[in-house]
Simulated assay, not measured.
Amino acid sequence: MTTTQPAGTTVPGPSAPGVRSAPPRSWTRNRWARFAVRRGGRLLISLWVLVTAAFLMIHLVPGDPIRGALGPKATPELIEQTRANLGLDAPLWQQYLDFIAGIFTGDLGVSIQYRLPVSDIIADRLPATLALGIAGFIVAVLVAIPLGALVAVATRRGRRRFLEAGFASTSIVLATIPDFLLGVALVWIFGVTLQWLPVAGMDGVDSFVLPVLALAVGPAMILARIVRVELLAVLDADHVRTARAKRLPPARVVWRHALPNAVTASLTLGGLLLGAMVASTVLVENVFAWPGIGSTVTGSILGKDYQLVQGIVLVYGVGVLLANTAVDVALAVLDPRSTVLDDAEGGR
């Protein structure tokens, strides 16, 4: 017995051999979603390790940190009272949970040295450190990229050997000088001898010049060398040859077609340099009496103010992790191929 179908209706039938129906799309098939999940997961794990290490800092200090902070003349009653006020008399697991809860609520404890909340001290001094660090990073990038690009173009294919040798030797010397020694030299030259610039404090734009230079010169030289090497490789790439074949102006070929690829390849190193510059602010701030966290952490370590040290370690650690995450995101946006490579690595 046969049945007839009404006109205009479609009878479902078996799929053609070798043809697969498209599976429903989900976030797991979106490489950007997978990229965000992986980077977010790594950031959360790194933050957890940082928080745990900062918490264990007090408990791994040899001896009694409370007695060390209060001094040898402190009475046992004062020591026990201080330990109770800081919550260090509770079980270790309870202290850990309270420490994590305090991070989310902004309660990082009370400074033994200053008798003030740690969060208030950090909030008061953090803007100065951020201003110095951001200014130093911007100056380093603005110096490194044009310098590396100009030297690469000038010394391409073995030209101007003297310029290449001079750039290499100068950049190596400046990159290996510790930033605090460079700061002392800048103070002696421009502050003491020539008396052109202030050497201490944060008062006006001119007070930024010397500490920013001390912070940025070394990283700028390192980054400039990397930009030069990457640009030399990109200048011989196929797409750059195609741009030259179209008789585009040489400056446009370099700045529009070659340099963006070289800078993208240098972003990873830029993230590492940014983390190093964040740590370098500690020494630079002490040289120039900068009213930031760097000068505070030195005094807190000498005064054995471990609550304050904990809070500052968290701030510096979170700053480095966020900077590296921002660089990863920028690299993925500027060069989407990086997410593909991550996908390939994740699927192995």
Rank of each mutant, 00 (worst) to 15 (best):
A279K: 06
L331E: 07
G319P: 02
T281D: 11
L314E: 01
V287M: 00
I312R: 06
T281S: 14
Y306R: 05
S295T: 05
A289T: 10
V318Y: 11
T281H: 13
I301P: 03
G317W: 01
N286K: 04
D305H: 05
G317K: 08
I312V: 12
L321K: 03
A344P: 01
L322Y: 06
G311L: 08
V309S: 01
G299R: 15
S280G: 14
A289N: 03
D342P: 02
G311F: 06
D342C: 02
S338L: 13
V282S: 09
D305A: 04
A279R: 11
A344E: 15
A332Q: 09
E285N: 08
L314N: 10
Y306T: 14
V333W: 12
L322R: 05
N324C: 05
W290I: 13
S280K: 08
N286I: 03
G311A: 06
S295L: 03
T296S: 12
E285Q: 09
V315W: 07
L314R: 02
T298C: 07
V340P: 00
L283H: 05
S295V: 12
A344F: 06
V278I: 15
E285I: 11
K304W: 02
A279M: 11
D335I: 03
T281W: 02
I312A: 10
L334Q: 08
L331C: 14
V309T: 01
F288Y: 10
R337Q: 09
G299H: 12
N324M: 11
S280C: 08
L322K: 04
G299I: 11
A326C: 14
V315P: 02
L334S: 12
G294W: 09
V278K: 00
V333E: 05
N286C: 04
V278L: 14
V318S: 08
D328A: 08
D305I: 05
G311Q: 08
Q307R: 11
G303Y: 14
V318M: 13
V320S: 07
G311W: 09
P291F: 14
P291G: 14
L322A: 04
V313Y: 02
V297L: 15
Q307A: 12
A289Y: 02
L308I: 08
L321Q: 12
V340Q: 07
S280Y: 00
